[in-house]
């Protein structure tokens, strides 16, 4: 063989080998976890060479897509019910479900000083519109309704509801000022352990059921080393530190 042919042959083999090791992972991620996932993905990709293709959106929509053949290999859900359901229906791999984060609900306004740190603004009711995520489909929306029910304010406040399709749209309604305040995920307004702007009441965890967010490997990702590596990475210290800095618990 001529040296140049040899070299070409070697390069081909090498790229083939690398290609086999560096896999692409298709993962569906709950909208509230967008910011931490981007940071985790960057670190994970750098360390492992795998590539993450993440889609962010409402968990209910992902459920519909997954059960209808979407190519996702893993789901980072906004709740624990959807992964459980997927496992029961055979669309997700048994024994791979775990809680990657526990979400915190926050009542937030883009205006400084609008929301007090006791949430008394709710009872005063001096606002036109309050944004919540669709309680039928979004766990943060359901938690918000639970909080208002517990405070006996639901009937009084529900006429002022504007409902976001998911928690990202809910945040968008509040951040553009179209709703004066709204119930969003702490992760959306927190960076490095601090609330970045506006005013907020971090809703005490005892006022609603824990927002347990579970991840699960889907049938399409079964046995794939890269997918398993990502799931393990989410349980590791580095990922947890990032997750924590956005206000999640474990």
């Amino acid at each position: 063989m001529k040296p140049i042919v040899k070299l070409a042959f070697a390069v081909t083999l090498l790229t083939a080998a690398l290609g086999a090791r560096a896999d692409e992972i298709q993962v569906a991620v709950a909208a509230n976890f967008t910011a931490p996932m981007k940071e985790i993905a960057a670190v994970f990709e750098k360390e492992t060479g795998h590539k993450i293709q993440a889609a962010y959106g409402a968990t209910g929509k992902f459920y519909a897509q997954i059960t209808n053949g979407a190519p996702f290999e893993a789901l980072l859900s906004a709740d624990d019910a959807t992964p459980t359901k997927l496992v029961a229906e055979g669309a997700a791999v048994k024994g791979t479900q775990f809680t990657y984060a526990i979400g915190t609900l926050v009542l937030w306004s883009a205006k400084p000083g609008f929301v007090d740190d006791q949430g008394k603004v709710l009872a005063k009711g001096k606002f036109e519109k309050i944004a919540i995520a669709n309680p039928k489909t979004a766990p943060y929306g359901a938690a918000a309704v639970e909080v208002l029910t517990g405070l006996k304010l639901l009937d009084q406040i529900s006429p002022k509801f504007v409902t976001g399709e998911n928690i990202a749209q809910t945040f968008q309604f509040v951040s553009t000022g179209n709703a004066e305040l709204g119930f969003v995920a702490l992760s959306q307004v927190m960076k490095d352990g601090k609330i970045t702007d506006g005013s907020a009441w971090i809703v005490p965890g005892k006022l609603h059921e824990k927002i347990r967010q579970d991840a699960v490997i889907l049938e399409k990702g079964k046995g794939k080393p890269a997918v398993i590596a990502l799931m393990d990475y989410l349980k590791g210290d580095k990922a947890r530190e990032i997750i924590k800095s956005f206000g999640y618990e474990f």
Partner: peptide
């Protein structure tokens, strides 16, 4: 309709 689909 979209709501119905999302809510399964």
């Amino acid at each position: 309709i979209y709501d119905h689909v999302e809510a399964m």
